[in-house]
């Protein structure tokens, strides 16, 4: 067993830093959605949610330190979900 012994220890400090960023982003999203942004409200909220999700995946879930394989597979899963939603909208938008 050679290749998988690269376990990466993430320091308490960077984990806590990530947590602070996540809480700050939560505050930001609450504040932003209190404003009257019209149609951009959904976009703003979802963009911030995606950034938060990215942080959780990269740091908490160690994806930043995984090899290419897992990253590609995660990408594949997300693309699949996006396609499922996207193609359905060909029906929903034009009916």
């Amino acid at each position: 067993m050679t290749m998988n012994e690269q376990h990466h220890t993430i320091s308490y400090k960077s984990l806590t830093g990530t947590w602070v960023a996540l809480v700050a982003l939560t505050a930001l999203t609450v504040a932003a959605t209190r404003l009257d942004l019209g149609g951009y409200k959904v976009l703003t909220a979802l963009t911030i949610a995606c950034i938060k999700a990215g942080l959780v995946i990269a740091i908490f879930m160690h994806m930043k330190y995984e090899g290419r394989l897992l990253r590609w597979l995660l990408f594949l899963a997300l693309v699949t979900l996006a396609i499922f939603i996207g193609l359905t909208f060909f029906d929903v938008l034009y009916r």
Binding site: T26, T29, V30, T33, K41, V42, A45, L46, I48, A49, K52, A53, V56, I57, F60
Partner: peptide, 14 residues
């Protein structure tokens, strides 16, 4: 946690 990150804005904030 990840799932909740999306549930929260979609249901509570929009």
């Amino acid at each position: 946690d990840l799932i909740w990150i999306f549930i929260f804005p979609l249901y509570y904030l929009i």
